[in-house]
Each structure stands twice: as C-alpha cells, then as structure tokens.
Nucleic acid binder design. Structure first.
Lengths: 113, 113
DNA sequence: CTCGATTACGAGCCCCGTAAATATG
DNA sequence: CATATTTACGGGGCTCGTAATCGAG
C-alpha cells in the first residue's frame, strides 16, 4: 500500500464522489476508480457503496477510513519531525553524567550552551 | 512512501546490516541499499550510519524508526480488522430504537440473533 | 440522466536482479 | 578484510492518461 492511496481514499470520502475527487486530485476518473478498487482488493472488502449521486462509505469503509486518517496523520508527523531535525529547529538532547565531574562545573557548562 | 519501505527499514535495523537484511528479505543487497537511500531522500536525512560491520541508526534514524514501527503496526491492525470483518468474526453492531416497538419484543428479537 | 465501471492502448516511471568495480572504516 | 556504494544494463510491473463505451440507480 502506498501513502498516496490513503489520500485518494480520504479525498473520495470528502468529495462524496470519485469524479469530483479525481478532479480535485488532478487525476483522471478511470485512474481513481482503479486506485480505489486496488485498495478494496488489498483489504478484501468494498469500502464505498456506489450510488447514483456518487459514493458513500460502507461500514467497513468507515472503519478503514478512520484508520487511514490516523495513519496519514502519523506519517505526515514523521515527515514533519524529519523536516524539523533537518532545519535545526529541533534536536536530540543527550545528557551524559560522570561522577568524576563536579556537578557545579557540569551545570555551568550546560548553562553556557 | 510504500509500506514495504517501512519493513525494509525495520529489517535493516534488526539485522544491523544491509546485506543480512537483504538476505532475510529475499532481495539483493544493491536493491536494499537503493531502497534505504530512497527513504533517506524522502526524509531528507541520513537514517543509518555506515560502519565497517554494518549499519547503525543515526539519531534521526532512531526517531524515524520508532515512528515507522508504530505506523507499520497500525497498518497491520487495519488490515487485520478488515480480515476480521471479512470472515465474519467481527461486525458492526447497530442498535436502532423506536418507541413504538415494545421493549420486550425488541429484546426477544435481539436474543434470537 | 448522472455517475461509476470497463475496455483498449500506450507512455513513462519505478523497482529489482545481475555483475563487476570502487570506496570506506 | 568486511561491508556498503556505485555503475551499467535490462526486464517486468505498475500507474496513469486518453477516448470511448457500457451499466446501473
């Protein structure tokens, strides 16, 4: 499964239709149709019910969409964290302690950072 | 990003080396090398430090691995839930209530399921 | 009638395998 | 020395676009 597929699912759910979602995603309707079918094949269940005015999540679809939202968010968070590390906004603070170092000079050193 | 890539990362971390991980994954070592580089390109950071005896996670790598573990688990959980739904082990229980239905016959009906 | 599904075709990309040479700690 | 990286080559699969047609609520 690709993270892109999660966005596809969420877009279809948001727009309530494959055609509209495809337009919003900047892709063709047949491509998105196939993408959704791909995911449904991987889960082994119909995730959307096709109606005359578009699509609506099935019960299984609702459950999977909830998980998809969660996973998509955590993936984005992971990338954000990496971006933060990259731009130096955030770092990993490591504190080492050795009994041979006087506590006073240790904290003085920390403070000077 | 593909979920497969998460497994690649975790395997490399587990085995402490790209060569060994590649063997465990049943793929070639150059392919896994490129896969890791792919992920590192997407995160914009080096996730593993190359040593003489294999590789070790960098600080950024440790952070990303933790998130990767979490996401991989949640993805598996999502698939498991779908599998459970599919095989009827689990379902979505919906209870509807209408004042016009006598409570006694309602519960009698539920019990008969 | 509206929207999704399907078909057919092809283009392009991506991932991987193999094999050998190179770099690094 | 062991391990990872790089290079070159090719195969295979997957994803998408287009265009047109079919199917169903």
């Amino acid at each position: 499964m690709e993270t892109r597929d999660l966005d596809y699912l969420l877009a279809v759910d948001e727009h309530g239709g494959i055609g509209k979602a495809a337009e919003a995603l900047g892709m063709s309707q047949p491509a998105l149709t196939k993408a959704i079918q791909r995911v449904e094949a991987q889960t082994g269940l119909a995730l959307f019910q096709r109606t005359a005015h578009g699509v609506a999540p099935t019960q299984a679809g609702s459950l999977f969409l909830a998980r998809a939202r969660r996973i998509a968010l955590e993936y984005e968070d992971a990338l954000k964290e990496m971006r933060a590390l990259r731009s130096g906004e955030q770092g990993v603070l490591s504190l080492g302690y050795s009994p041979t170092v006087p506590r006073r000079s240790f904290w003085a050193h920390v403070a000077s950072c």
